[in-house]
């Protein structure tokens, strides 16, 4: 692994090779940081496009690439023990189980009922704004909040 060589090089050059510390070379840290910033810009740009259903996939893909960069380099996963990585990554299996079953249940029978938004019984369903209310809204008296509560 080239990164490993690079880091142990820097280790040796500093004269502190103790076997269990793997200082990340500065260029790697900076490169990862700029990659993350670029990806952030990319995801913001991507949001301005109209991708429809692909939008979710695209944003989450970019987010996952960013997460992978953070995990691998900032969190030193590339030098970490396999056991630690297995423990951490397995948590996502359980998250997937949790989300999977819960979502499956929510989209089973009765889904159509759930889709309907209930109109709340509070003043939120107040009639459309009339000219009088509009006039009031220009007065600085916080009546909006008053009407809600």
């Amino acid at each position: 692994m080239s990164e490993h060589v690079a880091s142990s090089d820097s280790n040796v050059s500093d004269g502190h090779c103790h076997g269990f510390s793997h200082p990340m070379p500065v260029w790697q840290l900076l490169a990862v940081f700029f990659a993350l910033i670029l990806l952030t810009v990319a995801t913001v740009y991507q949001a301005t496009l109209d991708l429809g259903n692909l939008e979710l996939v695209a944003s989450l893909t970019i987010a996952t690439i960013k997460a992978a960069l953070v995990l691998l380099f900032f969190m030193h996963m590339i030098h970490d023990k396999p056991l630690n990585i297995i423990f951490f990554m397995s948590s996502f299996i359980f998250v997937a189980l949790f989300l999977g079953f819960t979502l499956m249940d929510a989209h089973g029978s009765g889904y159509q009922d759930k889709k309907e938004l209930k109109v709340l019984d509070s003043q939120r369903a107040v009639a459309p704004v009339d000219p009088a209310a509009e006039a009031e809204s220009e007065a600085p008296s916080g009546n909006g909040a008053g009407e809600i509560t």
């Binding site: 189980l97 079953f101 499956m104 249940d105 989209h107 089973g108 029978s109 009765g110 889904y111």
Partner: peptide, 22 residues
Amino acid sequence: GFLVWGHHMFTSGMANVTTIIF
């Protein structure tokens, strides 16, 4: 133990397919 929690909810109005799987 992580795969079976739904059996506490058989009468809670879960979707039919979910109850069968659980």
